[in-house]
Computed example of a mutant assay.
Amino acid sequence: MIDRRTSPPQQARPRSARPARPPRERGTGKAFALAAVMHLLLGWLLYHGINWQNNTPAGAEAEIWTDIPDMSTPTPRPAPPPPAPVKVQPAPPPAKDEEADIALQEKKRKQQEAAAREAQLAEQRRQQEARDEAEAKRQQQLAAQAAAAAAAQKAMQDKQKQIEKQRQADLQKQQQQQKAQQEKERQEQQAEAQKAEQLKEQKEAKEAKAKADAQAKAKADADAKAKAAAKAKADAEAKAKVDQERKARLAQLQGQLGGGTASSGEGLAKSGTGRGAGGNATSPGYAEKVQRRVRPNIVWAGETAGLETVVSVRCSPSGTLLSASISRSSGNEQWDQAALRAVQRSDPMPVDTDGKAPDHFTITLRPAGG
């Protein structure tokens, strides 16, 4: 058989060259050697089958024995019967030998034909086995090629699946990144919008506060002006009343022989000290009353060394503060104003033991620690 799958490719020959010989079949030498061995074996069998009974059979030989008399005993024995005659088989006639040779030769011929048929069948079986083996090898090679092709196709499919899987993963990752970027931009826009809204609210609140402060300041200024006008009016009325009372008292004092002596008192105020002297006669404890009234109203957080302010006060008999002014400055305008505000916040002034407040007196104030 010609193995076309393993035969080498034929090279192209020029037209002038002789035609190419067909490729030599594989296994031809083995086939010829096996055929020669089978023919030799068949010849040997034929030779020995013909000659193994070709020799003339040897004749049969027979020996006749008689009993030897015992010479040791004198007693005579009776004579043995005569031996039976031996029949000698005559040789077979020549005609029968020829028939035996013919039968033997026929038998040998049949044996040779049977051996030849057996050898032919064996050769056919061998060739069939060789063909079956070659076909099995071809089928194995085809199966191996099919398996290799299937494995290659499966590997390609697996690779394509892996590529598709990687592509899907990359696409999903890209989508997630885009989504995260969009979410980040949305949060930034939302934060900017919130910041703008907060700035707007702060601006509106600031404007509203400024407007409210302006309104409050305008109202405070108006109230201050109204209060100042009312106070000026009250001061004028109180001054007129005080003048009238003074005139009345002076007239009363002129008719009397005795006079009053002034008294003085000292007191401490919050964040400062005070000393007051009444223009009219007062009880010894009145200065302490003024101290307790003015002390909580002093508010000062500045320097304290060397500051002393004298405030002149005028009151009605009920203690209502008619006026308060700086009669001697400390040289620090802020402290002077703090001392003046403390006296103004102390309105009304305490009354004395007789149920009336002095009409005028002075208070000396110093910061705490001054």
Rank of each mutant, 00 (worst) to 15 (best):
R5C: 02
P9M: 15
R26Y: 08
G27L: 06
A31C: 06
A36W: 13
A36S: 11
L41H: 14
Y47F: 13
N55E: 15
A58S: 12
E63W: 05
E63Q: 06
W65D: 08
W65Y: 09
T66N: 10
P69G: 05
D70G: 03
D70C: 03
P76S: 05
R77H: 09
R77E: 05
R77L: 04
P80S: 12
P80K: 03
P81A: 15
P85S: 12
Q89W: 04
A91Y: 01
P92Y: 10
P93W: 14
K96V: 03
I102R: 12
L104G: 07
Q105N: 09
E106L: 08
K107D: 08
K108A: 03
K108C: 02
R109V: 13
Q112A: 06
A114G: 14
A115L: 06
A119H: 06
Q120I: 05
Q124N: 10
E133A: 14
R138L: 15
Q139T: 05
Q140L: 06
M156P: 03
Q166D: 01
Q175V: 03
Q177L: 06
A180E: 02
K184N: 09
E192H: 06
L199W: 10
E201F: 02
Q202I: 07
E204K: 13
A220Y: 01
A220E: 10
D221R: 01
E237F: 09
A240I: 01
A248W: 11
R249N: 08
L250W: 12
G255C: 06
Q256W: 04
L257Q: 07
S264G: 12
G267Q: 00
G267S: 02
K270T: 07
Y286A: 02
P296M: 14
N297C: 12
N297D: 03
V299R: 12
V299D: 02
G302A: 14
G302E: 13
G306Q: 12
L307E: 00
V310A: 13
S312A: 14
G319N: 13
T320I: 05
S325E: 08
R328S: 12
G331Y: 00
Q334D: 09
W335R: 00
A338N: 02
A339T: 01
V343H: 00
R345K: 14
K356G: 04
K356Y: 11
A357Y: 00
